[in-house]
């Protein structure tokens, strides 16, 4: 399984995703970027929750939105859809 990289620029900053997937399912994701998120540690929860998610934009976005609600996340200028977009760019290589 190769790790693929995707880059997406949101209004709040650049999101670089490193994604491994197998049979259309997310195995692992790491993210590097200059965006903001409050609380910061919530990004690790988002990434953990994404493991096992079908590798398509809607499923990714919905999964991230759920964690946003649960963890009361704010990220000015960056939305769950922006993270999904960055991850999809990695998957589409």
């Amino acid at each position: 399984m190769a790790t693929k990289q995707g880059i997406h620029k949101s209004r709040g900053g650049l999101i670089r995703s490193f994604v491994t997937s197998e049979n259309g399912i997310i195995k692992d994701i790491t993210i590097s970027g200059d965006f903001f998120m409050f609380p910061e540690e919530a990004l690790f929860i988002i990434l953990e929750q994404l493991k096992g998610t079908p590798a398509n934009h809607t499923a990714l976005r919905k999964n991230i939105e759920e964690t946003y609600k649960k963890e009361n996340i704010q990220s000015p200028g960056t939305s769950p859809s922006d993270f999904a977009e960055s991850i999809m760019k990695a998957l589409e290589g």
């Binding site: 670089r16 790491t30 993210i31 590097s32 970027g33 200059d34 965006f35 998120m37 910061e40 990004l43």
Partner: peptide, 10 residues
């Protein structure tokens, strides 16, 4: 580095 930045990436 910002909290979300990886040294070897950035």
């Amino acid at each position: 580095l910002g909290f979300f930045q990886k040294a070897d990436v950035e």
